[in-house]
Design a protein around this nucleic acid. Structure first.
Length: 552
RNA sequence: GCCCUCGUAGCUCAGGGGAUAGAGCACAGGAUUCCUAAUCCUGGGGCCGUAGGUUCGAUUCCUACCGGGGGCACCA
């Protein structure tokens, strides 16, 4: 907001400069309002003079002098503007501007930070998409939370979001799952059985088999088909996955079964369409897609010589379906192990006339669990992997969410179990939540003492003048812009960093200044500051799917 | 071999075409008659992987190389 006002001011000066012949219009749109790293360099800076000078073969500091001349009277926005360094113009914003942020923030309350930059655009966020072969692992957990946080960011910025879970219950994996279940079933009945070589060894298979014995007795002992076992397992596991997701506060709008693509002929339609464009051919009994036409090193099989499609074909059909359903933006959250599928799918939809720039793939790296400074080794197939449920049992949803959002997606995530378990200062989750609780506590103290905040319209914000207060106000002022940027970049970790930083600033302020004092006016002003901080902590935490406890 | 990704403080990581590169942890020391000490304050700590290139300016962009991770199936 404040940045925009400055930008507009600058643009006007730039145009006037063109009019006066100081410079040409060549630099229009090429200069920026930046955030200086150092406080001594002001609140904002512009590189306008250097950009213009570069294009016009002028001296940067002379251009900057012209700019200051055009700026003339500073108005109610700028306190001071000065030329610095190689030709920066640094701007110092009036304190009153920062102070005026507070009433507006408090007026907006829960809406502060929200925006309409999405303008209702329809966005599909696809994530988790794990086939129901077992409980969610920590890797899925990261993806679930990352995907959900991205969805939340988009919802907070005026996008119409659909969360979708894509799965396939027809593949080899699921067959092995059914066979594993059958083997356990027969085992419980004391009948001869053969456990599949690459079967699923988790205890949950036993649970499912036991349940099957309970409900069906031994009536399945001679069942030739794997189907009933598979179905029972799938159902149980899906219920389990959904329960885990619910514990995390994640609710999908839609579960898309790959099978529907076969049933309604979408798979065949893709092959036919590609064939029409001469992009498929047959060789060695298989059907190949000419991905080399799209810059790839070799062509790819889309239908095996067994007649079964490879994963690429349904993936392409699925994405075409997303386009058909009218989404303006399709966000896929994948683990880095699925990275190879991306180019094939993009090539497929592009070949069939879709705009692949509407698809954004967020690839996240793996999670390493750390215990006592050592890595916890995990194997999915074997029984020894840590599930999201176990993590939730240990540390709770807020901690799990926070830890999984602490790193940007492309960075590997080290999940320190010991740190996560600590209910203390060490744990960054509590550091942030404690700030919120403290703010609530101050509010309660004031109420208990009968100290009233007074009316918002009359809040004496001009009394907020200490460095700590102004810094807090600046941070609060930057929140909406931060949310917008985080949403468009699909980077929820920025919110986490912001909250940690804000918590640090608040705790610093708190230990140096008293909110409730004999100075009635100052107390009122600070109570409103407390209210503004409380709102932003709350909005930030809730936006990331976490709770904002009022006491700890 | 090819593709993707990462390389920033002892550790885990932010940042990012600009002016003196940050946080947390760890380490050392200190703060509580007073709104929650799950807090705060002070201190040391860095050829931003290496070498080139683009630029007025590169830790940031480009190229190559080195190192870690992931992928390169008629598995998903």
């Amino acid at each position: 907001m404040i940045r925009e006002r400055l930008q507009e001011r600058l643009d006007r000066c730039f145009d006037q400069g063109v009019g006066k012949g100081f410079w040409s219009a060549a630099a229009a749109g090429r200069y920026a309002v930046e955030d200086p790293k150092q406080a001594a360099h002001g609140d904002f800076a512009t590189n306008l003079a250097m950009v213009v000078a570069g294009l016009e073969k002028q001296k940067p500091r002379e251009v900057a002098a012209h700019l200051l001349e055009l700026l003339g009277d500073h108005g109610d926005l700028i306190e001071k503007a000065e030329i610095a360094g190689p030709g920066f113009v640094n701007f110092f914003i009036r304190e009153t501007v920062w102070q005026s942020v507070l009433p507006e923030l408090c007026r907006q309350g829960p809406a502060y930070g929200r925006s309409d930059i999405g303008q209702g655009r329809k966005v599909l966020v696809e994530f988790v998409s794990a086939n129901p072969t077992g409980p969610l692992s920590v890797g899925h957990g990261r993806q679930a939370i990352l995907g959900d946080a991205i969805a939340r960011l988009l919802q907070h910025t005026g996008h119409t979001v659909t969360r979708e879970y894509y799965y396939n219950d027809a593949g080899r994996q699921m067959r092995v799952l059914g066979e594993s279940t059958r083997a356990r079933y027969l085992e419980i009945l004391g009948l001869p059985h053969q456990f599949p070589e690459d079967g699923y060894q988790g205890e949950y298979i036993n649970d499912i088999a036991r349940q099957l014995v309970k409900t069906r007795g031994d009536e399945l002992k001679d069942e030739p088909a794997v189907q009933p076992f598979k179905e029972a397992a799938e159902q149980a596991i899906f219920a389990d996955i959904n329960a885990t997701l619910a514990r995390l506060g994640i609710v999908f709008d839609n579960y898309f079964n790959e099978h529907t693509l076969y049933d309604n002929g979408k798979i065949d339609a893709v092959v036919a369409a590609l064939r029409d464009k001469g992009l498929v051919y047959e060789q060695d009994g298989a059907v190949w897609f000419r991905t080399t036409e799209f810059g790839m090193d070799k062509d790819r099989v889309i239908i095996k010589n067994t007649g079964e499609p490879t994963y690429r074909l349904p993936d392409i059909a699925y994405h075409l379906e997303k386009f058909r359903r009218g989404f303006d933006w399709m966000v896929n959250v994948f683990g880095s192990d699925h990275i190879a599928t991306v180019p094939d799918v993009l090539a497929g939809i592009k070949a069939l006339g879709c705009d692949d720039s509407k698809v954004t793939v967020v690839i996240h790296q793996f999670v390493t669990l750390m215990q006592g400074g050592k890595q916890v080794k995990m194997s999915t197939r074997k029984a020894n992997f840590v599930t999201v449920d176990e993590l939730l049992d240990e540390v709770g949803a807020d901690v799990v969410r926070f830890f999984f959002l602490m790193r940007r997606a492309e960075a590997p995530l080290e999940f320190d179990l010991e740190l996560a378990r600590q209910q203390s200062q060490e744990n960054p989750v509590y550091y942030v939540q404690y700030a919120h609780a403290r703010l609530c506590s101050v509010r309660q103290q004031a109420e208990a003492k009968g100290v009233l905040r007074g009316r918002l319209e009359e809040a004496p914000v001009a009394r907020l003048t200490t460095d700590e207060e102004i810094e807090l106000l600046k941070a609060l002022a930057s929140f909406p812009e931060l949310v917008s940027h985080a949403a468009l970049a699909l980077e929820p970790h920025r919110i986490i960093y912001f909250l940690q930083d804000l918590a640090g600033r608040f705790h610093g302020f708190y230990s140096r200044h008293r909110v409730i004092s004999d100075d009635h006016e100052l107390t009122q002003a600070r109570l409103w500051l407390v209210e503004g901080l409380r709102i932003v902590f709350r909005n930030g935490l809730v936006m990331m799917g976490m709770t904002a406890p009022e006491s700890m």
